[in-house]
């Protein structure tokens, strides 16, 4: 009998631990929405998202400049990082010798593990001065943010895409080569189309990493809550908006930061469901 009870207790404890992840997710959702929704209700969702001015001390809360600024930075990062990442993944999976791969792959894992604040620091001491001296402007700019985020999303795109390319069945490749196709024709017409959804997942994960990033963008973007007019202008990301002002925000201002968090949260959830959709369609 004792054994029987013990087994049941163990099972319930394990079940509760398994529920913890759901519980935490629910708690985060409830806390952030309950703190942020009152302000969105007060200002109005459209005025909050489309408002062109962020002057929290005057009670004006519009996050459009940060949405637009963040959008430019992430587009730039994707333009720089995604093609390079996919090409590097093809290189590692299809072309590189085993020994070269054995050098580069651990390097990519290392890049994945480096804290974002170290990337930000690198951007601050290297990229910002270079941009200021050679291109003009303050150096703290959309361009600096895009380059740093591109470097940061690179390992994610490479790691996931390489796995996708490697998981393409050998027979497909062999059949194509046997039909007289060159290696490049095989990569373009057989391997990439088959690996497409895996590569897409890598790209979306990279996007998620870029939009989630806080420290690196704070350190190189300059953080002015204005619409950037060129890639050499400073900008502010949504994440940075929260991190920069939490230290002293109170009242409506504090709620506005939680409201910023809600917008970020919704965008992230959408991108996660996009990944699931891409993967499900692939399985069907």
């Amino acid at each position: 009998m004792y054994r029987h009870y013990k087994e049941r207790i163990v099972k319930s404890v394990l079940f509760i631990s398994a529920l913890a992840a759901i519980f935490v997710l629910g708690l985060i959702t409830v806390v952030i929405f309950s703190e942020g929704l009152p302000l969105i209700a007060k200002v109005g969702l459209f005025d909050f998202i489309l408002g062109a001015e962020w002057r929290p001390l005057a009670g004006i809360f519009g996050i459009a400049p940060m949405i637009v600024g963040g959008f430019y930075v992430i587009c730039g990062a994707m333009l720089l990082g995604v093609p390079l990442g996919i090409a590097c993944a093809i290189f590692l999976a299809e072309i590189a010798h085993k020994r070269i791969r054995a050098v580069i792959r651990p390097c990519i894992e290392l890049l994945l593990g480096i804290p974002s604040v170290v990337y930000g620091f690198f951007g601050l001491v290297i990229l910002v001065p270079i941009i200021r001296e050679h291109f003009g402007g303050p150096g703290f700019s959309v361009l600096a943010g895009s380059i740093i985020l591109a470097i940061m999303l690179l390992p994610t795109v490479i790691a996931v895409s390489e796995d996708a390319i490697r998981s393409v069945q050998r027979t497909y490749k062999e059949a194509s080569l046997a039909l007289g196709a060159t290696h490049w024709q095989t990569i373009r017409n057989v391997i990439l189309p088959v690996a497409r959804s895996g590569i897409m997942a890598g790209v979306i994960l990279g996007f998620g990493r870029a939009i989630s990033e806080t420290m690196a963008v704070i350190m190189v973007l300059g953080n002015a809550p204005i619409f950037p007019q060129s890639i050499l202008d400073p900008a502010r990301a949504l994440t940075a908006n929260i991190a920069l002002e939490m230290a002293y925000a109170t009242g409506d201002h504090l709620q506005a930061l939680f409201a910023t968090g809600i917008i970020l949260f919704v965008v992230i959830l959408l991108s996660i469901s996009l990944i699931n959709m891409v993967q499900k369609r692939d399985m069907a």
């Binding site: 997710l25 708690l27 985060i28 806390v31 952030i32 703190e35 998620g208 939009i211 989630s212 990033e213 806080t214 994440t239 929260i242 991190a243 939490m246 930061l257 939680f258 968090g261 970020l264 949260f265 992230i268 991108s271 996660i272």
Partner: peptide
């Protein structure tokens, strides 16, 4: 997938 800054807010 939740950004660390949201964990911070929470």
């Amino acid at each position: 997938g939740i950004p660390s800054i949201l964990f911070g807010l929470f």
